[in-house]
Design a protein around this nucleic acid. Structure first.
Length: 558
RNA sequence: UGGGGCGUAGCCAAGUGGUAAGGCAUCGGGUUUUGAUCCCGUGAUCGCAGGUUCGAUCCCUGCCGCCCCAACCA
């Protein structure tokens, strides 16, 4: 992988980097420490890439470090498989946490001790209210909540109860530990938030050691403090939690006082970027898995053939702000094409084959023609491509009754076969149903390589593959998974699924050189787009992205 | 009707009391053995209304709109 571009230039400026720069300059910190804190309950997607690039990027740029910390406080929905996938994805994106791999579960004992301290200080209490009751007591957005009848228990009783909770003396949901703050607070998060709940569920890392687990608010900030995180960067929806984050750090007399800053999350058009939706798509089998190439997951993009550098570049063009918007998929596509245009070697492949017989080319003979691996970059060298009497060309490159603006093959028309010869269509052969099944053409031996000695020009150049030498493959074409820029909410987003998001072409013909292409390697099929050999199925090629197609626009206009 | 956040071209955005960077998209044009690439060119009464000022997108006031919060999720 080419890691020349990290996507995080030193010139990058945004309000967070300004704060870091200012903090460092004022001597509030000697170095920056950030963290990327995923919950291992799903795969990472491109939205996470924004956070990863920000956190690791800031650390890199300011000579600090970034921790990878799993926020594994809910054993009922987290799995080891996700931990492994997340580590792989972060690494693949090009970031290194070094020795700094942590788990919130590593801090469970410390967290528990802090909770006892809170109880002793009269800042937390055990509440016996059932969930629905607690909800009713919480009030609404416009009405203050009421104090729980258990709110004024003595510290000693709370302590005994909390210890009994830990000892497993109560069933799930029987009691919780709550912070004692203010049931009338405008900020709902301050209305005596739950800190611990009973969950008789084995944890992937701590096994059955615990049956009470801290929730996000009592784990995140504390973990940040334990790791001496200086800048805790999260998305906007946590802004309301900041007062609680600070209240808790203050109340437990934390070993460090990290500061939380919020930025807007990434929204991408024509895609689903919420964990809930992605999980649903995967679990309901709407896609083939977390790494389905149509998904905006990191593993899906990788399988699709998108280079990590393109993702980093895309993220670097996004600004870190607090305004939430919807970034057009076209932006991502541009970054992918821009990178692949430079790096992808060129090859020829015919996706929807139409047979062509060169009548004046000697039967049973053949020759090797030289093709550039990248017309714009001679350093990438050239290769030889076999040519013979029978070829395949793209069906779209022939029209029986072509409009004036169509530059490709038609009855009596002459075109150039890329890196080969000029050919002229002499005859069309159709089957019983009238479908064109074969073209009989003649070639001009004088045009070998693609230029005519007499200086005559042709309007079009088309790609081809020698039938006898071609390698067969299945090619999968992908389109946006959703029709709408912004799929509707609820389960209605399923109705917006694009039925044409995957088109499988069972019998495509590739130039022989492609037989040796490594899995995951992306090349350009000339005039068609960027494709890569699938990471799993060797005979499958995935289309990363098509080339920009101005002909489609002309054609579309009629 | 409570709390928090945000409103600069179709999209992402920079910017600042002195009259609006850049990228993407779009639409024109040029080059081209990929209708690709590349190269040129193309768009803004800065949410609205008042006010302060010689002058406001930037300051003040009011209004409007959008997003988030009432899980023992994160």
């Amino acid at each position: 992988m080419n890691d020349e571009t990290t996507g995080a230039e030193d010139s990058t400026r945004d309000f967070i980097r300004d704060i870091v720069r200012e903090d460092l300059g004022a001597g509030r910190h000697t170095s920056v420490v950030t963290r990327f804190p995923p919950e291992p309950n799903g795969y990472l997607h491109i939205g996470h890439a924004k956070s990863i690039c920000l956190n690791f990027g800031v650390a890199q740029e300011f000579g600090g470090r970034c921790h990878l910390r799993f926020d594994d406080t809910n054993p009922t929905r987290e799995e080891q498989e996700f931990v492994e996938a997340i580590k792989e994805d972060v690494s693949w994106l090009g970031f290194d946490w070094g020795e700094h791999l942590y788990y919130a579960s590593d801090y469970f004992e410390q967290l528990y001790q802090w909770a006892e301290g809170l109880i002793e200080a009269g800042k937390a209490y055990v509440d016996d209210l059932p969930v629905d009751e607690m909800r009713a007591y919480r009030g609404t957005l416009t009405e203050a909540g009421r104090n729980s009848p258990y709110r004024d228990r003595e510290a000693a009783e709370n302590l005994a109860l909390f210890r009994a909770m830990r000892a497993g003396e109560f069933p799930d949901g029987a009691r919780v530990l709550r912070a004692k703050i203010d049931m009338a607070a405008g900020n709902m998060n301050m209305r005596d938030p739950v800190l611990y709940r009973i969950l008789h569920s084995p944890h992937p890392r701590t096994g059955t050691d615990w049956c009470i687990y801290p929730n996000y608010d009592f784990a995140h900030g504390q973990s940040d403090a334990i790791e001496a995180i200086t800048h805790s960067l999260c998305t906007l929806e946590f802004a309301d939690h900041r007062p609680l984050y600070e209240w808790l750090l203050e109340s437990i007399d934390a070993p460090a006082r990290p500061k939380q800053y919020e930025f807007s999350r990434l929204n991408l058009s024509h895609a689903a970027l919420s964990k809930r939706r992605l999980t649903q798509l995967v679990e309901e089998g709407r896609v083939s898995g977390w790494d389905d190439p149509r998904l905006p997951t990191i593993s899906g993009l990788r399988r699709r053939g998108v280079p990590a550098a393109a993702i980093r570049d895309f993220i670097s063009r996004l600004a870190i702000t607090k305004s939430d918007g919807l970034v057009e998929m076209a932006m991502l596509e541009h970054c992918i094409r821009e990178l692949l245009n430079v790096e992808a070697p060129r090859r020829m492949a015919v996706l929807r084959p139409l047979k062509v017989v060169i009548e004046n080319y000697p039967d049973g003979e053949g020759e090797m023609l030289v093709a550039q691996n990248h017309p714009g970059n001679p350093d990438m060298g050239s290769r030889e491509v076999p040519f013979s009497r029978e070829l395949y060309i793209e069906r779209d490159d022939f029209m029986e009754d072509p409009p004036k603006k169509f530059f490709r093959l038609g009855p009596g028309r002459e075109v150039r076969l890329r890196y080969a010869y000029f050919i002229t269509c002499q005859e069309i052969i159709k089957d019983a149903s009238g479908e064109v099944v074969e073209l009989r053409c003649t070639y001009d031996p004088e045009t070998r390589g693609g230029n005519a000695p007499d200086g005559r020009k042709v309007k079009g150049t088309i790609h081809w593959v020698s039938a006898a030498h071609a390698v067969g493959a299945e090619v999968r074409l992908y389109e946006n998974l959703f029709n709408s820029e912004e799929p509707p909410g609820g389960d209605e987003f399923l109705a917006d699924l694009n039925p044409a998001s995957l088109e499988t072409l069972p019998q495509a013909w590739l130039e022989p050189d492609l037989a040796t292409l490594a899995p995951g390697q992306t090349v350009q099929f000339e005039r068609l787009g960027y494709f890569c050999r699938d990471l799993g199925e060797a005979t499958v090629f995935n289309r990363t992205l098509g080339l920009r197609d101005s002909w489609a626009k002309i054609k579309g206009k009629g």
